[in-house]
């Protein structure tokens, strides 16, 4: 924003409106010695001087409802104005449907503002009617598919009113548009976790879905994270699902060296070591080799992290050597 919206030539300042002549405007009081002198545009000053006046006199009337609209147009992030507006809505018994339309318009102009979304939520709670929410948030996410406020509101509406039915389709569309959209992957987890549940069948379906997306774009942090996340719910764990391990080895064989692939194979090695189920692909030697490759070649910026992991596996290797004939119950996580 670059100016206070003074472009509207039809604007009449409150101090010149006869219907407001009974109110004495209250200028901003910063105490005896202002900490910081604030200069407002004339319009801003006029509106907020009258807002302060009605706040002091606690006036609850239609004209104040209009005044809050002007005040919010100048600064939709002012939470005190929103709070007063809600008090007014209750007091005046205002038609909340009109208010829904109004806040929708404000959201369209300021989609990244905490206060507007919160106001929306309070209205939906008062009305107990979530029918517009999926469309509203869907529109906002069309503009910015990672808008945190829109996602929060959408999750709240879905969870509170049980609107899961078409959500996976919605998510799938977003992932198809941008396979790296982490917010959409998070929402996928949200739907499966809260609604479908992680049955064997669902787990397998999700594995297939995710591998297909990884095949499309290999170096995709979000998809790899989702794969790890869903395997928390698969009793076979990271190393026990042959579909996944052979998929990874195939990628590796085809010269894919995405850091996320290598990191995932390291995790498979770790899981295999933990379960004492190592094999020629997944063991401490392989983990060491991959950590070194990441540290020195494929992900140098995080070399300290890969070296740290590498040391862990080397320690495991040497302990394994020294304990060769003993049963060792080494736990390698801290």
């Amino acid at each position: 924003m670059s100016d206070c919206g003074d472009s509207d030539v039809l604007w009449i300042p409150y101090k010149e409106r006869p219907e407001w002549s009974d109110v004495t405007p209250v200028p901003e009081d910063d105490g005896p010695n202002p900490v910081v002198v604030i200069a407002h545009s004339e319009k801003f000053e006029d509106v907020y001087d009258y807002f302060r006046a009605v706040l002091q006199s606690n006036e609850k009337s239609e004209r104040v409802l209009h005044l809050t609209k002007d005040a919010l147009e100048l600064n939709p992030a002012n939470y005190t104005v929103w709070q007063y507006r809600r008090d007014l809505l209750k007091h005046l018994n205002t038609d909340l449907r009109t208010e829904l339309d109004y806040v929708e318009a404000v959201i369209k102009n300021s989609p990244k503002n905490y206060q507007v979304w919160h106001h929306r939520r309070v209205l939906v709670e008062w009305l107990q009617d979530p029918t517009m929410e999926l469309e509203l948030t869907g529109d906002a996410l069309l503009q910015d598919p990672k808008n945190y406020h829109a996602w929060q509101h959408r999750q709240w509406a879905i969870k509170t009113f049980g609107l899961y039915e078409k959500e996976l389709d919605f998510v799938d569309n977003l992932i198809t548009d941008d396979v790296r959209n982490n917010s959409a992957w998070n929402q996928r987890y949200f739907v499966v976790n809260n609604n479908l549940g992680w049955s064997d069948l669902i787990c397998q379906q999700e594995v297939c879905y995710t591998l297909e997306k990884i095949n499309f774009v290999k170096n995709n942090e979000s998809a790899w994270n989702y794969l790890r996340g869903l395997l928390i719910h698969d009793k076979r764990g990271l190393s026990g699902n042959a579909v996944i391990t052979s998929f990874c080895e195939e990628l590796y064989k085809n010269k894919c060296r995405s850091p996320f692939l290598l990191a995932f194979i390291i995790d498979v090695c770790e899981d295999a070591i933990k379960k004492k189920d190592t094999n020629c692909f997944h063991n401490a030697d392989r983990a060491v080799e991959l950590c070194q490759a990441l540290a020195t070649r494929y992900d140098k910026i995080r070399s300290k992290y890969w070296n740290y992991l590498c040391e862990r596996y080397k320690k495991y290797q040497s302990e394994q050597l020294s304990n060769d004939n003993k049963t060792n119950d080494l736990i390698i996580d801290e």
Binding site: E28, V36, V37, A39, S41, F44, N75, A77
Partner: peptide, 18 residues
């Protein structure tokens, strides 16, 4: 000197988080 500038529009917009 932040906020001492009388024409500082940003500052008037941030009153709500002063």
């Amino acid at each position: 000197s932040y906020g001492l500038n009388k024409d500082d529009y940003e500052y008037c917009m941030t009153e709500y988080l002063r």
